[in-house]
Simulated assay, not measured.
Amino acid sequence: MRTNGVFLFVCFIIVLTFSSFVNIEENKPSKKFVVVLDAGHGGKDPGNLGNGYREKDIALKIVLAVGKELEKNPNIKVIYTRKTDVFVDLFVRGKIANKANADLFVSIHCDSHTSQAYGAGTFVLGTHRNQTNFEVAKKENSVIFLEDDYEKNYAGFDPNSPESVMSILLSQEEYLDQSIQLAGLIQNNFANKLKRKNRKVKQAGFIVLHQTVMPSVLVELGFLTNKREGAYLNSKAGQNEMSIAIRDAILEYKNTIDKNVTDFNSIAENDQPIQEIANNVKFKVQIAASSKELDTKPYNFKGLETISRQKEGNLYKYFYGNTISYEDAKTLEEEAKKKGYTTCFIVAYKDEKKIPLIDALKSTAN
């Protein structure tokens, strides 16, 4: 009888221990999606003062409204570069995002012009397509002259020099695809949902975007110098509409990322291993996207060899490796990440045509 009692006690302890392990695993918090919201200007830097409105105030109000909405999602963590009327150096804004290991960086601004120009636009870091884009970036970048030790912090960067601006562009290239994706979602909401004039997604050399190491965009909400648009952006209704449009775009971007991960895991967790390809499917690792056509030599890609280049629209995309084995592609991806391409990802091609990775994986699972 005593033996049975001991046996039952041991079984109870084993079950209790196992249950605790299961609960620990179930309750283990997953990494939240981190969004850094950056209200342009602030403190001694008012931004533009079109029609008497203050850019720094409007940008802050919209940032706080976007953040308040995003914080309702328990899987999102919002970090602000400023929540009050204070001056924050541009390089510090980037440091805040990098230290947080953010998934997105969104900087909010308002535009100005000597004419009655109007409309909303979203920028990603890149080559100036024209003098107008350069002038927009120059206005925002000139804030560094208000900072202490700006020459030291920006290594001689001159906002007034196109050559100086061009020199900062390559650092963000590996995030360009994702940045353009988010910018496109924001612009789609501005143009289609709010019927704002669509100034489209553009590239320019904003130094605040250069300081970050994650997908990053800069939103120009509209022109305070335009009487009608300035009044709209200064109104509570206008600020609410613009903040909801930005919130929805960020959520849509996050949902797309989450869906890709879920679809991938559903294939990767299949009981049967992924087999070698016998149907003309090959895998590569995309490491960068650029508006520049670079020579595919190792010195341009941190020593990586077997680099290929493909033009898609206005962008040149750069890939590392070329293999029929998905397992080998994963090894290549790890090698690229160790070299510093932390956001690289695997892509699939069939008969030299790009196909969704999920379709390639499905075709190889037997």
Results as ranks from 00 to 15, higher is better:
108 I>N: 06
108 I>V: 15
109 H>Y: 00
110 C>L: 01
111 D>M: 02
111 D>R: 05
112 S>M: 00
114 T>H: 13
116 Q>R: 10
116 Q>Y: 04
119 G>K: 03
120 A>D: 02
120 A>S: 15
121 G>I: 02
122 T>P: 02
122 T>Y: 04
124 V>D: 08
125 L>G: 08
127 T>M: 12
132 T>C: 00
132 T>E: 13
132 T>V: 12
133 N>W: 07
134 F>C: 09
134 F>E: 08
136 V>F: 07
136 V>G: 02
137 A>Y: 12
137 A>H: 09
137 A>P: 04
138 K>L: 01
138 K>S: 11
138 K>C: 11
139 K>Q: 10
140 E>K: 01
142 S>I: 00
142 S>F: 05
143 V>P: 01
143 V>Q: 15
146 L>I: 05
147 E>R: 09
147 E>C: 05
147 E>H: 09
148 D>T: 13
150 Y>S: 01
150 Y>L: 01
152 K>I: 05
157 F>H: 04
158 D>F: 04
159 P>C: 13
159 P>D: 11
160 N>A: 14
160 N>H: 12
161 S>I: 03
163 E>T: 11
164 S>I: 06
165 V>S: 13
166 M>F: 01
167 S>R: 15
168 I>V: 15
168 I>H: 10
169 L>H: 00
171 S>C: 09
171 S>R: 13
171 S>P: 00
172 Q>R: 04
172 Q>S: 10
174 E>Y: 04
175 Y>K: 01
175 Y>G: 10
175 Y>I: 03
176 L>E: 10
178 Q>C: 00
178 Q>S: 07
181 Q>M: 13
184 G>K: 06
184 G>L: 05
185 L>G: 03
188 N>E: 08
190 F>C: 03
190 F>G: 12
190 F>V: 03
191 A>H: 11
192 N>R: 15
194 L>R: 05
194 L>G: 03
194 L>S: 06
196 R>C: 04
197 K>F: 11
199 R>W: 04
199 R>S: 06
199 R>A: 02
200 K>T: 00
200 K>G: 01
201 V>D: 09
201 V>K: 05
201 V>P: 07
203 Q>L: 07
206 F>K: 00
209 L>Y: 00
210 H>V: 00
210 H>F: 14
212 T>M: 11
